[in-house]
Design a protein around this nucleic acid. Structure first.
Lengths: 175, 175, 175, 175
DNA sequence: TATGAATGAGGGTTCATTCAT
DNA sequence: AATGAATGAACCCTCATTCAT
């Protein structure tokens, strides 16, 4: 439903109609509208963390792992394009009014990113960088492309930007 | 008011109380709640564009100009920390339901950034980069630090991160 | 509720209280205050037309039918005395801002009246009259008595005036 | 202003703009919106009574006087067509929420009409009629044509219906 | 477990009225 | 006398939530 209307314009009526349930039945599963959407976002976030975790198992440390991490995030945002269109446009209280939870979600992503980057530093693939700081940078870089992608329609495909992001992050702009 | 409550939870009563006006008086100045907040955002955006324009006049092309651009954006976000806390947390419909306007605002920023980057490319300070793409990258990088700053409280000062951002953007992570 | 307060002074709160419903419940049945009152008036009007139609089935053409028509209208206004007190005093936008609809309602009544009068003319019970014009006259005559009745309290009973109206309409004032 | 908008949709702003005065200045002349419109209606009514009074001075008793009375009323309604369009459609609380006053206005008209009719009865121009009752009839007859005229646009001219009204009232429908 | 009619607090907006200038 | 910006009570309508069935 969020792909059509923003959070505040989505009524429980809309949700129930889409769910093929009666309005009252929604309340058998979620005590509150806020909780319903919070769980939606948390599910999505769990999925992201899971896919970031899989990065560790399925790729070699260093460059391949960083690239896999970038790809995993792009894939995640592409899969949930509709919802993030809302989130980025600020249409959905990202975590339904709970800043700490928002911090936690971003924090978890940053922690994984930091680990992967520090790994690459240890392997001398990256120069000596402050892990958390570089993680913020990479995080922002990725979101920048996601943002642009979502805002400007769907071309070019988000997945295809992984190479560009890696190139910018790895080599920088320097001549 | 936006620093306390999100857009949809801010009532015109809240606004008027904070403004020291009666509720009705608000409507002498803005025909609609949406318009009131739209104008707020547009004023802020105009200020950003103005300060980005000033970058051209007050700095040499190439590296200094890119650094000035980064600083200008950081300064802008720091000045409006409160509002952007909301925006980044998705608490405020940044553009009050008008995606095109959102695209325009971001587009204007990206255009200036593109110009400045292409300048640096022409001057051989940057390697041969696709201007618009690199602009998205820099834009994301900056916003990433702003986001982290806003989310994690105020330390370290946002302005002090200009060097880090420049370093990451210019040199990349490569060993 | 209209018997106590005029349309614009009747709040949906008043209506709901009188209906023994919550305010919101009203909106399950009518999308709008205007529509609620419009339907009230339309229902009343449908009832009037129905009772005018019945006149045709239950009375002989000519004099009896005209008398029945007069009686039917008086009965209708008497049944809805309260509402028409408002309407005649101009307390209720009779048609809620839609002049065409008003014309239609009156038009339908006039058409039936015209038919009945022309019938009587054909039967040589009435002299040769322009049907539509005479219908307006009879319509006004009836409403005049309704108006007076409503304005001056309830005596004498409206139904008892049918004879007087017929007498005036049939014989005129001529010596 | 009443010719464009109904009473409740006319704001004091509208009135002041039309009057070429500031809104506040209105309140130097009328303490209240209701009072402003009440005085408007009372002025109109005074004008009607005056013109009915003139009927006595300017026409012979009996038939000419009744005809003059009819003409005077038609003229009055034609002059104030706009306002009465509102009143008849029930758009304007005829006397701003004061039924007694409404009764008085109609009562005054009926009294004059009664006098004129009884005069004609005494002169044997009319058969023996109950004055007040016949007055109500004539009053209704006239209003019926005014109503039809106002509702159906302006043709035919209201003034031209005086003959028809007189004919109906005088001769009745009888063959 | 499922329903959906009913609820009623709360929001945006209007506009008659006031009052400092 | 004239102004018009300011006021704030009041209204229509929405929608998350409840509860009898």
């Amino acid at each position: 439903v969020l792909e059509d209307r923003e959070y505040h314009d989505v009524t429980m009526d809309d949700v129930s109609r889409r769910a093929g349930l009666a309005k009252g039945s929604l309340y058998l599963h979620f005590p509150t509208k806020e909780r319903l959407f919070r769980e939606l976002v948390e599910d999505m976030h769990a999925e992201l963390l899971e896919s970031l975790d899989r990065v560790r198992g399925s790729s070699a440390p260093g460059e391949p792992r960083v690239r896999a991490l970038i790809a995993a995030q792009l894939g995640f945002f592409e899969r949930h394009r509709g919802v993030f269109l809302q989130v980025f446009q600020g249409q959905m209280p990202f975590l339904c009014g709970d800043a700490r939870r928002s911090r936690d979600m971003v924090g978890a992503t940053l922690r994984v990113t930091t680990d992967v980057i520090e790994e690459a530093v240890r392997l001398r693939r990256f120069r000596s960088l402050d892990g958390p700081t570089a993680a913020i940078g990479l995080f922002g870089l990725i979101r920048g492309f996601v943002f642009a992608h979502i805002l400007c329609g769907s071309s070019p495909a988000l997945g295809s930007r992984a190479g560009v992001i890696w190139d910018l992050f790895f080599r920088g702009a320097r001549a």
